[in-house]
Simulated scan of single mutants.
Amino acid sequence: MDYTLYHDESKVDGFWHGILLVPNSKKAELINLLNTVRKNTNYQSELGIKKVKNERSKITRCASGFINVGVASLISNNKGKPYPIDLFRNDKGSKEYETLYPNIGAKFILFRERDNKTVLENYPDFGSIVETTFRFGLKGGLHFLGNHSDTIIITGLHFDGHEHYNRLLDRNRIVSRLHGLRSYCSISNVKNIIDDRKSNHEKEGAQSYEDCQLLQLVDLMIGAFRSNLGFATKDLHKKIGYPTRILFDKYCKGYKRMSNSRWANSLCFSQCHHSSGGWVFEQLELKQDIREKQLNLGL
């Protein structure tokens, strides 16, 4: 199946990559749900987890709705079961859940460089460490999420603006060095496959409105997952992102249990760090103090 990739990052207690793979055939359906949230919350400006500060604000309601849509979009097999999704149907702001039978089948990869770019001295600039660790996360995620009956062909890559890298992203470092991909996953050989223009649809020179919405969704999804793994910047981010915690808990029950879930082959969580022997890859887990609190509570 053909997918378009959307990427954003976060620099809170590590360096996080969020990678959303959207089936090209389902992109319009996902955008329609996000537009419904915007219409119902009457919020049309740029979304981002850092902007979510007040529980009763329009942006918070809109961000919450986006995250709900994002989680629903990751359902790979609805099994004929309804899924209640908060699209904020009530103009007064109260929650009214709409029952959907999601059939989008997006995939999400969350990858963390544990030490927050401490190995940057081994690379020429900030952009190069981003490109390298992104490549690590993408390759591992594609191998984990795809298979011979669920192929992944990436036809486009969208990144959240090149300005903070102080240069355009390097196609060679991202695509050409992505060696050893298994036969069921590939990246189309297209010259201009990377779009790294701005993700704010209100700014001149931004990507298309639709692509901006999906990049903003990735920003929110990283913040939601990160916060519910114990790396929160605000309690409010953890609260509006709680649906992502439910997905992580399902994931932690193991591959066999997850393969029977409605979110089968939809999620990949991992991290890396650099040691004297090179790069080390491992499972992404809850922050230690959060795990200890759960054990003390008997959870």
Rank of each mutant, 00 (worst) to 15 (best):
R226Q: 13
S186L: 05
D115M: 09
V280M: 12
D249R: 09
N24H: 07
S149K: 08
K27C: 04
T133Q: 03
S73I: 00
K39H: 12
I104N: 04
E9A: 15
I59H: 10
S199D: 04
K27E: 08
S176Y: 14
D86H: 06
F126M: 10
E210A: 10
P243T: 00
K92W: 13
I19D: 03
V71S: 04
V22I: 14
N122Q: 12
L299C: 15
L157Q: 10
K287Y: 08
D115G: 06
S275W: 06
M221C: 03
S128E: 13
L229K: 02
Y251C: 08
L30R: 02
L100K: 10
I222Q: 00
L138K: 10
H237Y: 02
S188K: 13
N42T: 11
A63M: 09
T4C: 12
E113C: 00
I31A: 05
L220M: 04
S149V: 11
S94T: 11
L297D: 11
T233F: 06
D211I: 12
G161V: 06
K51H: 13
E121T: 11
S276T: 01
P102Q: 01
F126T: 11
R171P: 06
Q283G: 09
D196H: 06
F281A: 08
E96V: 10
R38A: 09
C185P: 01
Y184I: 01
D289M: 03
N40Q: 03
W263H: 07
L295D: 11
H7I: 14
N172P: 05
E96R: 08
K238R: 12
L110K: 04
N54F: 13
Y101I: 00
N192E: 12
K79D: 10
V12K: 08
N166P: 02
E202M: 08
L33I: 05
G70A: 08
Y3E: 03
L215E: 03
I75S: 02
P23S: 07
Q213W: 12
L47W: 05
E204N: 11
V190R: 05
V22Y: 03
H17W: 09
R167S: 12
R167L: 04
D160W: 04
Y101A: 04
G93N: 02
R197I: 10
S176N: 15
R197H: 14
K139T: 13
S266D: 01
E292N: 08
K256G: 09
E55G: 02
S25D: 12
I153T: 13
K27I: 07
D249M: 09
I187S: 06
Y6F: 15
R245E: 09
G127R: 07
N40R: 03
K95L: 07
I187F: 15
L138N: 10
L217M: 11
S64L: 07
Y97M: 10
F66A: 01
H162R: 05
I194M: 05
V280I: 15
D115N: 14
